[in-house]
Design a protein around this nucleic acid. Structure first.
Lengths: 331, 331
DNA sequence: TTGTATGCGTTATCAC
DNA sequence: GTGATAACGCATACAA
């Protein structure tokens, strides 16, 4: 406090000088399980407290060779489910003692920069739900031997692990549920993604198995207006569906809104409706939507487990869903 | 590739040896604007590419004393607006060349750990919308001389900068708008927060100024069910309000739902309704909610500007709102 | 248990 | 323009 002009951060040497001990003693006083006497540790720590010393963690990373950082790569499409996912994953990683480097990717240019950062910061691993993270990016990351965990991705290569929901099983369950509820004219409202394809396949598979006509399939985006537009198309169709499975809750809510506002129809009276993700809005009194909870906490735990595996490995982990039955399928 | 068992990351020394040059040459080949001949740079870079070398950025941080990290501190309450905020801020910080350390705080215990990390990782600054980041935490961060930017916070101390929306002005605008629309029995649905208090004060101030009776004030949480419960109370009240301003869109949507489902009433016929935040759902056909956009991109830009200021300073920056008029106030 | 000395991978300051 | 060398702040092998 005398020499430095209140500019340079306090170092272990400063503390050592103040306490009249060696720099290594200071290091040991802040290292769990180090061989140091209680009296020495107290002396050092009180001197440290006085100076406002906080160990710099950057050199530690250099020495260990591991940064302790996990990159969380997120991208534009904001959906309430993604927010919940982000929260679950950051919580799980933090509890595992990892620090989270948040990287936002908006286009391919940003992606290149991100891949460089991943290597430059010596991250211990990467977690992403981003579909933009395709073959070439995966290859680039593999080249640096960084474990990657992807969510609901079809990708598969060295150093890539995938955590996925049982999408096919959920599609089958949706078909069974609505058939039991008396549905006869089925429809699927999807979007171009691996997860959507699997949900649709399961839906179609089960319908065929129980002797139902194949569903009417519509494609949209993953957003509310995608569902709304699809519903308008269905309202105009010759055979109006009475059992609709949507790729996610946002589109399902769009369908429900169009059903009521554009068609003057009611869910579930005029059509049963099933969504996916169990977002907060699905429980609102206006919707009471039957949906599938992806158990993001378990997915996050799985991701952490797969991430600590140091060897190159292609592993897939499938997390079961939880069916949340609400009013939209009540008959 | 011969000696190491494919374990140790490639260093600049490895590249130097492979290219037959000095380690400094390698450093220069990867430093923008360094004094190096094109032929040398190409030689080094091709050798680097061959070995898969990526400069380690950690030592650079040690030398500079600045990490280039900005801590983004987020907390439990997930609201679509927070997701949009997070996106805007991470984008702005990334464009400013900062790396984002995402820290999740759930309770006071986690907060202590976070404050330690802030110092340990030598972050260049902290951004947070968290109200949990109170006096004592702020003091702890100030002690490490780390600039902090808070959103819509009333806090004020050394090293703390605040970016806020013109909450008071928005409250006044909401009052004027609904009075012009013919409202006579006003209500405010709030929550315990500094921002809510300012919005309410502006609302009350303007109503008094134009000679209206003071609004009925209800307190809830910031979520859908808070608005729903408040609306049920209003429906049971002797003088049912006909002009309602809500602390945010989620509560406003809750009010709209209760109005329709519990009361069989219509917005805007039976009551005008104004929200805050301009979340995606506010534009859905079922709500078409008049609301205030906080211009998060501008807030994020302001935050970045305040963050780069190295000196201790107490600065406040007020970002104007944009009124989004929709059907819920159409008369 | 404690102090001394060395190394982590890079950038920056010097000579050449 | 290029190479040797000294730092950055800490952890650790080793000597005492």
């Amino acid at each position: 406090m005398i020499f430095d002009g209140a500019e340079r951060p306090v170092t272990s040497h400063d503390v050592a000088r103040a306490a009249g001990v060696s720099q290594s003693a200071v290091s040991r006083a802040f290292t769990a399980g180090a061989s140091i006497s209680p009296v020495m540790r107290d002396k050092v720590r009180s001197a440290a407290a006085l100076l406002g010393y906080q160990p710099n963690l950057l050199p530690r990373m250099m020495l260990h060779g591991r940064s302790g950082f996990i990159a969380l790569v997120v991208g534009g499409a904001y959906n309430p489910f993604h927010a919940a996912t982000l929260e679950a994953f950051s919580r799980a990683l933090q509890e595992a003692g990892k620090k989270i480097l948040l990287l936002q990717v908006d286009d391919d240019r940003a992606l290149d920069a991100v891949v460089n950062d991943l290597a430059g910061y010596r991250v211990d691993g990467v977690v992403s739900a981003l579909s933009i993270l395709g073959e070439e990016a995966a290859a680039a990351i593999s080249a640096h031997r960084i474990p990657v965990v992807l969510l609901n991705s079809g990708l598969s290569s060295e150093w890539i692990r995938v955590v996925e929901t049982d999408n096919h099983g959920a599609g089958r369950a949706a078909a069974r549920l609505m058939a039991r509820g008396g549905g006869t004219r089925f429809a699927y409202v999807g979007a171009p993604s691996v997860a959507s394809a699997a949900r649709k396949a399961g839906f179609q598979h089960e319908l065929a198995k129980i002797g139902m006509a194949p569903p009417l399939c519509l494609e949209g985006n993953l957003d509310h207006d995608g569902g709304y537009a699809a519903a308008r198309a269905m309202l105009a169709a010759p055979m109006r569906p009475d059992a609709i499975f949507c790729v996610n809750d946002l589109t399902a809510i769009g369908v429900a809104d169009a059903w009521r506002i554009e068609g003057g129809l009611d869910v579930p009276r005029d059509a049963q409706l099933v969504g996916f993700d169990n977002i907060a809005a699905s429980a609102w009194p206006a919707y009471r939507l039957t949906t599938f909870d992806q158990n993001v906490d378990r997915m996050a735990a799985e991701a952490v487990r797969l991430l600590v595996s140091p060897a190159p490995a292609t592993e897939r982990s499938c997390v079961g869903f939880t069916l949340i039955e609400r009013h939209s399928t009540a008959r």
